[in-house]
């Protein structure tokens, strides 16, 4: 049973193409190729309510993604959610009195952290804590408030 060289080469190409496809799925499609941790610095912020924010959610300034949420924890003492975010090192010039708020992209979109730059001289650096935060906008609470107001004025 003679196995010709061509067949062996074609099988090699087949296996290589399959592995290349898997590699492309891993690197290009999934989130494994997210930025390396060393090219970023860590900033924390605490929120009363983070709504639907998740780890890996984007951090944006003016709509442009400048980093990612990497951890969300609950602080038992402050009774608040502590959000840790990694911001790309190339965006190192963010004023330290910037405000963080949780926005929703579109009506049904994902939630992200928006930073509103402040006017202070200093910049956020590794380990900084953002003081001024605004919680997620929770639709149910808003509707509830609207309904109580409407029934109040109706009397």
């Amino acid at each position: 049973m003679h196995t010709s060289r061509t067949i062996e080469i074609l099988v090699g190409v087949f296996v290589a193409a399959g592995l290349a496809a898997f590699f492309m799925l891993a690197m290009k499609v999934s989130n494994i190729s997210s930025f390396a941790e060393k090219d970023s610095y860590v900033v924390k912020a605490s929120f009363d309510n983070i709504g639907g924010l998740k780890t890996r959610s984007p951090v944006r300034i003016g709509g442009v993604r400048i980093g990612r949420v990497t951890a969300i924890e609950y602080d038992d003492n402050k009774l608040e959610a502590i959000v840790t975010m990694h911001i790309y090192q190339k965006h190192a010039r963010i004023p330290k009195d910037s405000a963080a708020s949780i926005y929703t992209a579109g009506l049904l979109g994902e939630q992200y952290i928006n930073l509103d730059p402040g006017g202070a001289e200093g910049f956020l650096k590794n380990g900084s804590v953002i003081e001024e935060t605004q919680s997620a906008f929770v639709l149910e609470r808003l509707i509830g408030r609207f309904l109580t107001q409407a029934s109040g004025t109706g009397k």
Binding site: F14, V15, A17, G18, L19, A21, F22, M24, L25, V29
Partner: peptide, 13 residues
């Protein structure tokens, strides 16, 4: 099969 399925997904994307 896994190789072909990976190709299918990659080419589909």
């Amino acid at each position: 099969m896994p190789l072909l399925a990976a190709m299918f997904s990659a080419v589909g994307i």
